[in-house]
Simulated scan of single mutants.
Amino acid sequence: MPRYTNTAILLHWLMALLIVAAFSLGLVMTDIPGITPAKLKYYSWHKWMGVTVLALAAVRLLWRLAHKPPMHPAGMPAWQVKAADASHVLLYVLLFAVPISGYLYTTASNVPVVYLGLFQIPALFEGTPELKALFKPIHYWLNMLLAAGVAVHVAAALKHHFVDRDSVLKSMLP
């Protein structure tokens, strides 16, 4: 059975966990009214996860460029191959776009990003209310697109496993 490399599998599942955690935390923290210590802590954790996802996305992309993934199953219809390839490209783009848009939104809000409480990531520009208003919906909708893309990705993996009974899901399991 063709499989992804152990490094690819580790990066996939680590990023999946971080993305679900960051997305969930984003929903929780934005529903907390006012400014509270818990809300500020959650925002910090959310940013830490975003920076980590961005760094891991870079590592993952470099790994993917150097290591070919397993071939699609024999007999898979051409339209499914194209859809799978396109959805993977979209997911990779979003793995970069979501954390970058979060960084831009935070910078536009004149709030520093202090990674793990250890060092501040430099701001690329001076924030303004207009830029904040621009980047807030961009970050939100990119997250919603990522959530939809992940849902389709999971549904496709389950379809391959339970309907097609091929090795697609097994190739990414530890």
Rank of each mutant, 00 (worst) to 15 (best):
L118T: 04
V150L: 15
L146V: 01
A123N: 12
Q120Y: 02
F125Y: 13
N143A: 14
A157S: 08
L146M: 14
V111A: 13
A155G: 14
K159R: 13
T128C: 05
N110W: 04
F135V: 05
L118E: 08
H139R: 08
V150N: 03
A147F: 12
L142N: 06
K136W: 03
P129C: 09
H153P: 01
E126A: 14
L131S: 07
V114D: 06
V111S: 09
P112R: 06
F125E: 09
L118C: 05
V152W: 04
G117T: 01
L134W: 11
L145S: 13
Y140D: 09
A148V: 11
A147V: 12
F125Q: 09
L146K: 01
A147D: 06
N110T: 10
V111T: 09
H153C: 07
V113P: 03
L146H: 02
L116A: 14
H153A: 04
T128Q: 04
A133M: 03
P129W: 11
A155I: 10
P122E: 06
L134A: 08
H139L: 07
K159P: 05
G127C: 08
A156Q: 02
E126Y: 07
P112S: 06
I138F: 06
F119G: 06
G117P: 09
W141L: 12
Y115D: 00
I138E: 05
L158I: 11
Q120K: 14
Y140E: 14
A151D: 03
K132W: 01
Y140L: 15
A157K: 00
Y115V: 15
G127I: 06
F119A: 13
G149A: 09
L118K: 11
A151S: 11
G127L: 10
G127H: 10
I138K: 02
P129L: 09
A148M: 11
G117V: 08
L124V: 04
L145R: 00
T128D: 02
N143R: 11
A157D: 02
K136T: 09
T128I: 05
V154D: 00
M144Y: 10
W141F: 15
E130M: 11
V152F: 08
V114L: 02
W141K: 01
P129S: 11
I121S: 03
E130L: 14
G127M: 09
M144K: 11
V113N: 05
H139T: 10
W141E: 04
F135L: 06
K136F: 07
I121R: 01
F135W: 15
L131C: 03
V114R: 13
P122S: 09
H153M: 04
L142D: 05
L116S: 02
A147P: 05
H139N: 03
E126W: 00
W141H: 13
L118R: 13
A133G: 04
Y140P: 03
Y115F: 15
N143C: 08
K132P: 00
V150C: 10
K132G: 05
G117N: 10
F125K: 08
G149R: 06
